[in-house]
Design a protein around this nucleic acid. Structure first.
Lengths: 191, 191
DNA sequence: TACAAAACTTACTATTTAGTAAGTAATCCT
DNA sequence: AGGATTACTTACTAAATAGTAAGTTTTGTA
């Protein structure tokens, strides 16, 4: 009768992810997803018992994504510079989409989440920090990057600049994000 | 009949502010405030027509607070170092309270807010950035701080480190925030 | 091609949320 | 002391939200 979409589940994840990044986790309901997908509310419940299960899946997919990204870049032997550029580019895209990074969005709602989801968020954050740290350490070794802090500390500084940079851009405009981005890159390149 | 509290309105603002910083704007309802205050739901509506009016008042109070803080510190002739320390201390307290800064929290829900509130958020952010920029510029001139970027750029880097630092601390623990805090201060002091 | 499983829909319930209208108690003012 | 004003309460309503149960259509497979 109605058109059945074989990848409804993937679409739910896609729309849910977009909604978290643009409106926040506690600001959307299954009805919002159902409307965008042109299905009934119960169809969302068929694929994901509850909102927390959907969030859990979304985080899982981010973890998978970062694992894949890392493997791909390592497979082609990408330099630290290229790797970092790809990473930063993801944040620039967020600004253009009037969205913020999923971790920053979830951080706001963190205290409303069940422990199982909190643990997954921790896993994702730890992974991302580890990958960036590896990139910075490798770049320092190769002479591509110059910085005095430990790779771990430099990673924390870089990540917080980016994450809050996209949040700030939403309020005061893209220019502030661009200023931050340029400063980050210049500092890493010139020490 | 029941105990009338003359500062119910202030209490509502206080509880609302705490809820935004701990759970997020879209994660609490008037019922949550009513329960904590031991009044009925309608009492909250009496003081603030709707949730957006409450948020508006909360932001107004932050704007007032930063104006006062600035005036006080200028009145006693506080150095740039002391002024910045006071500012950073506010973020350290947030971490201890398992909360995040109100601007970062609102940034997540930003796209769900009416234009009138968005403008007020912008006003608050612009004010805070201006005050920090003045402090950094003054500290540079006095030789207290050493940095190569413009005061404006340095302010953006500092603010994003702090704002996302408290968000990150919520997920990975206070140690990461402390690392960021120390690095910020050391860099400003040693260049 | 029949049957089972998957992917839904319809139809419902219970709870939360936002909000209003009307009434009441306390306090303020003249 | 009486009337107005403030600060509520009780008692609603309408809509949104989360979720379930049972039935229907579609699709893959034996």
């Amino acid at each position: 009768m109605t058109a059945r979409n074989t990848d409804t589940k993937e679409e739910i994840v896609r729309i849910g992810t977009a909604l978290i990044k643009s409106h926040g986790y506690n600001a959307f309901s299954y009805a919002d997803i159902a409307e965008k997908l042109q299905v009934r509310n119960a169809a969302i419940h068929y694929h994901f018992r509850g909102k927390e299960d959907l969030l859990s899946e979304i985080i899982d997919q981010y973890i998978d994504l970062y694992h894949s990204l890392d493997q791909q870049l390592k497979a082609v032997g990408a330099s630290a510079t290229v790797t970092l550029e790809k990473f930063i580019e993801r944040y620039s895209c967020l600004v253009d989409a009037n969205s913020i990074c999923i971790i920053g969005s979830i951080a706001s709602d963190y205290n409303t989440l069940p422990v199982s989801v909190k643990e997954k968020v921790n896993e994702l954050v730890t992974l991302v920090l580890k990958l960036v740290e590896q990139t910075l350490a490798s770049g320092k070794k190769s002479g591509e990057f110059v910085f005095r802090e430990t790779p771990k500390t430099q990673t924390l500084l870089l990540m917080t600049n980016l994450a809050a940079g996209v949040q700030l851009a939403r309020i005061t405009g893209k220019k502030d994000y661009d200023t931050i981005k340029k400063a980050i890159i210049r500092q890493l390149k010139e020490g």
